[in-house]
Design a protein around this nucleic acid. Structure first.
Length: 186
DNA sequence: CACACGATGCGCT
DNA sequence: GCGCATCGTGTGG
């Protein structure tokens, strides 16, 4: 069983600087149809990665793994880390410019807080790396906005050791899908 | 080819 | 708060 999105984010929506896309994704709905199920949740936490020193594309370096980050916006960049975890990103920026948004938390689906748990719950894996969210039949993001009472917070990124001064993390205050980890507010 | 380590999460202290 | 699981990736020899 899959369903068609009534409307989904388009290439143009993804084609913007990673930090502004990270903020824009808050309140939008990530949908994954797999094994006859529709798994979805509302994005409540996201981080931007550009060519900064904490990014896989640090200093504009190109490697086989990060090539998706240099490709067209709106494509899924999924990577495997710590020998057991997957993380799901959405490519931002113009083609040729590296950038991605790490989706870190969802509301409306249980236990989708934290980028690795999110991937486990939505059954996202390396098999989804490179899928085009603008066209894929089973993976897309539907537009949405924070509710009026949901304040957008901005902090430094979590779980990195470099470029810890950049205010590239955004989340909706009070959402259950947000990491509890303390970060410097901006 | 060898090796150090990570955009994490969990369980124990 | 801390150690550890577990392996792909990048870097250097």
């Amino acid at each position: 069983m899959s369903r068609s999105p009534h409307i989904r984010l388009t290439r143009k929506d993804y084609q913007q600087a990673a930090p502004s896309l990270a903020q824009k994704l808050l309140g939008c709905r990530l949908v994954h149809c797999v094994d006859g199920e529709v798994l979805s949740g509302r994005i409540v936490e996201a981080e931007a990665y550009t060519d900064d020193l904490a990014s896989h594309a640090a200093a504009g370096k190109r490697t086989p793994r990060n090539r998706i980050m240099y490709g067209p916006p709106g494509v899924a960049y999924v990577y495997f880390t710590y020998g057991m975890h997957h993380c799901f990103n959405v490519v931002s920026e113009d083609e040729g410019t590296p950038g991605a948004v790490l989706v870190r938390g969802l509301d409306g689906i249980d236990h989708a807080n934290g980028p690795a748990r999110l991937c486990r719950v939505l059954r996202l894996s390396l098999a989804d790396n490179g899928r085009d969210l603008c066209r894929d039949a089973n993976l897309w993001i539907e537009p949405g906005r924070p509710r009026p009472e949901e304040r957008i917070m901005q902090t430094t990124r979590i779980g990195i050791s470099r470029a810890t001064d950049l205010p590239y993390r955004f989340y909706l205050h009070g959402s259950s899908g947000v990491s509890k980890t303390q970060a410097r507010k901006v």
